[in-house]
Design a protein around this nucleic acid. Structure first.
Length: 440
RNA sequence: GUGGGAGUAGUUCAGUUGGUAGAGCCCUUGACUGUGGAUCAAGUGGUCGCCGGUUCGACCCCGGUCUCCCACCCCA
């Protein structure tokens, strides 16, 4: 029986050219976050199942997580998301000075049927501000999100950030007579209003709430797309959640974040959200899945005992983002160009191998990236290989060169070949201005 | 879990009203191992997903099965 050439369903497997694209995207995201003073952290890939049970149902965890027993008999899961791990890290890190600005690029797992933009193993970007309970924190993370999109070249209007508030939603629901158990169900119904036909949704909401009158009011709320909506102003007046939305809007305008707009149908699925919630989506319709979702979770860190700590942040799927960038033609043609070798050392025959090797090592010590021929191919083939790998120079070690202790150095861009003393090859190459930025 | 589509060379795919297969890319080689990513020539490479049925004969038709993709469901 032959081994399968396929990875397990939905597992991440990136070839170098795909990895280069991901590295490009990750780099741009990181740069945007660094511009706001965020620091990078990481956490365990495997966590005790209790960490996620605390804020989501047992059924969901056992059905959609990679759950298993380790050799020590512990029930563990491959992390389905990062935020609970982050909350725990902060709960036991009293020395960090608040507010904390942290980011991470975790690989996470969810046992689901793969489809466009969704795999079982996936990398996401997480960014959070903790220890700040005010709306400024909400604004901060939304600003980073917008800057990430700009850094990646997303044009105005290609994406939008919709925001709402869990606090506002529950407040309004109470005022229209939906509370307790019904409130939870109502949030689920609000989430679906955009995915169903109007009459279909109405029937659904009536079934959930068991009464047409409240279903109509719920539909009214979920349809609100502006904080100036008269019904909303009247119904939500005086609610803390409404006031913070007004404040957030004021700050968003002051910061010039025009892609953001209020959308009452946004609730997000995570149970731990308590205040502002938001998501970023493609306005073009080419990517239906939200690229990013986030919100405020003020009670999560407190679960671990000790002092409570407010938090707000988001998770952004790298795969979904990549699809977005592809639909808008925003992936650079050759994202791997910056990591190509500088030099290919060609070897005429095995007699010159030792000399070539010492030259190559010396060039590497000078900070150059050097690929050396290890197959003993013809020079013609070696030049072809050098061209393909993108090396800017080929250093040839042949009988003449070894005898005279000089190397033939060919500039692959200009085609010129010069004879250079073996000791000064690195100096010669470094003196030629490169066509790419050298960040080392 | 539901529905649709697809499985043919390492890869991307074409193909035949049923007569046991072809292209591009990749890889290898190009007389003499001293110069290129593009071009040219030649070559390696396939149990046509798997099992069964119909047929003189199946990659093709029929049934089953597995896998992948897409859309639902769900989305902590």
């Amino acid at each position: 029986m032959e081994l399968s050439t396929k990875p397990l369903t939905g597992m991440r497997q990136l070839y170098p050219d795909e990895m280069a694209v991901e590295a490009y995207i990750v780099g741009r995201i990181r740069d945007a976050a660094l511009a706001y003073g965020f620091e990078e952290y990481d956490g365990p890939t495997i966590e005790p199942v209790e960490l996620f049970l605390a804020k989501s149902g047992e059924e969901l965890v056992s059905e959609q997580s990679y759950l298993f027993e380790d050799r020590g008999g512990r029930r563990v899961v491959l992390r389905p998301e990062m935020t609970p791990s982050l909350a725990r890290m902060l709960a036991s890190a009293p020395e960090v000075s608040s507010p904390v600005r942290w980011m991470s690029f975790p690989v996470c797992f969810r046992y689901e049927r793969p489809q466009r933009g969704r795999a079982r193993e996936f990398r996401q970007f997480n960014l959070d501000v903790l220890g700040s309970a005010g709306v400024m924190g909400d604004l901060e993370v939304m600003l980073v999100l917008d800057r990430i999109m700009k850094n990646l070249g997303a044009p105005d209007g290609a994406y939008q950030i919709g925001y709402s508030s869990r606090e506002l939603a529950t407040g309004v629901l109470e005022r229209i007579g939906i509370a307790g158990q019904d409130g939870q169900k109502a949030l689920g119904a609000i989430d679906r209003i955009g995915k169903m036909q109007p009459d279909e949704w109405t029937a659904y909401a009536e079934a959930v709430l068991g009464d047409p009158g409240r279903a109509v009011l719920l539909g009214r709320f979920a349809s609100v797309r502006s904080l100036d909506d008269p019904w909303m102003r009247e119904t939500a007046s005086g609610l803390p959640g409404f006031d913070s939305m007004l404040e957030l809007r004021r700050l968003l305008e002051a910061a010039g974040l025009r892609a953001a707009s209020f959308d009452a149908s946004i609730v997000r699925g995570l149970d731990y959200y308590t205040g502002t919630v938001f998501e970023l989506s493609d306005t073009g319709g080419g990517n239906r899945r939200a690229i990013c979702g986030g919100g405020r979770y003020d009670n999560l860190v407190g679960l671990f005992g000790g002092r409570p700590m407010a938090g707000v942040g988001f998770g952004l799927g790298i795969l979904t983002l990549r699809l977005f960038l592809e639909t808008y033609g925003l992936i650079p043609a050759d994202p791997g160009a910056a990591s190509r070798p500088d030099v290919f050392v060609a070897v005429y025959s095995s007699a010159e191998a030792a000399t070539a090797l010492s030259w190559a090592e010396s060039l590497r010590s000078s900070g150059l990236r050097v690929m050396m021929e290890i197959e003993g191919r013809s020079l013609s083939r070696q030049f072809r290989a050098a061209g393909r790998c993108g090396a800017r120079f080929v250093v040839v070690a042949g009988p003449d060169e070894v005898a005279s202790n000089t190397a033939s150095v060919k500039n692959m861009e200009t085609g010129e070949t010069t004879r250079v003393q073996a000791a000064s090859v690195a100096e010669h190459i470094l003196s030629v201005p490169g066509s790419r930025q050298d960040s080392r």
